[in-house]
């Protein structure tokens, strides 16, 4: 079984993001970029499936600018076998990504697609669900455990009330949550091997997808600064303030 893992290049999670002066978005010039952390988890899971003999090939795909090659090389250094870059400039919205992925799936015919539940830049949390709908494949979202069976899989989902285990038929679309695994860091020999692994470049148009954004960003602004707290002198003052100022009791 082949596993397809889409990965996205995003601003590194350690970077303190800043809004651009013209409020058109966040500053990405001279900012460290990395693989979306949730995607690292899906790459890790795919590699583990391969190591366990349950998958035969791990193919990673990224949709974005030429620099997304770096992200793909990272996935290859972790242990993925092959990479596909679908070049597209500017912001590509979840629906366009899902449509392109549908095209990639038609070519690659994977038995499983593992996606991060969301990308930490726009936090959309839409691509996996849209891909599930477009392909008509069963989907399991927010997954923290995967148990592969014969022609089906058991997925443990993180839901508001706790954990839910569902059975889905394969091929399936799965979006992964934080607790699924702890991604490895690439070993030196694998880093060296990564540059020799195949990386194909395609264009969005190859899949007949128009990536023009359907949404217009009007303005991006900093979250409001949190006001400083106050220290109250007594319990009765606290109760008084909760009642009359905060109006929560």
């Amino acid at each position: 079984m082949k596993v397809l893992v889409p990965v996205k290049r995003v601003v590194d999670y350690n970077v303190k993001v800043r809004v651009k002066a013209d409020e058109s978005g966040v500053e990405t010039a001279n900012v460290k970029m990395s693989m979306n952390p949730f995607d690292e988890i899906s790459v890790e899971e795919a590699i583990r499936l391969k190591e366990a003999g349950k998958a035969t090939e791990v193919v990673v795909v990224s949709i974005g600018t030429a620099q997304s090659q770096d992200t793909l090389r990272n996935a290859l250094a972790m242990g993925a076998d092959r990479a596909i870059l679908v070049e597209a400039d500017g912001e590509v919205e979840p629906l366009a990504v899902a449509k392109i992925l549908k095209g990639v799936i038609a070519e690659e015919e994977p038995g499983l697609v593992l996606l991060g539940k969301q990308a930490i830049d726009d936090d959309s949390n839409q691509t996996a669900q849209m891909l599930g709908a477009l392909t008509g494949w069963p989907q399991a979202t927010f997954v923290s455990k995967i148990e592969l069976g014969d022609g089906s899989m058991e997925a443990t989902r993180e839901v508001d009330g706790g954990l839910e285990t569902i059975k889905v038929n394969m091929p399936a679309v799965v979006s992964v949550d934080l607790r699924l695994n702890e991604p490895r860091y690439a070993s030196l020999p694998n880093i060296m091997k990564a540059k020799k692994k195949p990386l194909d470049t395609k264009a969005a148009a190859d899949y007949g997808v128009d990536v023009t954004p359907r949404l217009k960003t009007l303005k991006v602004s900093e979250p409001p600064a949190r006001a400083a707290g106050i220290i109250v002198g007594s319990v009765s003052e606290l109760v008084e303030k909760l009642k009359n100022e905060a109006k929560v009791i």
Partner: peptide, 14 residues
């Protein structure tokens, strides 16, 4: 190079 960056990242994590 990207290889350099990967070495740095892996070594930092280690």
């Amino acid at each position: 190079t990207e290889e350099h960056n990967m070495i740095i990242e892996s070594a930092r994590a280690f």
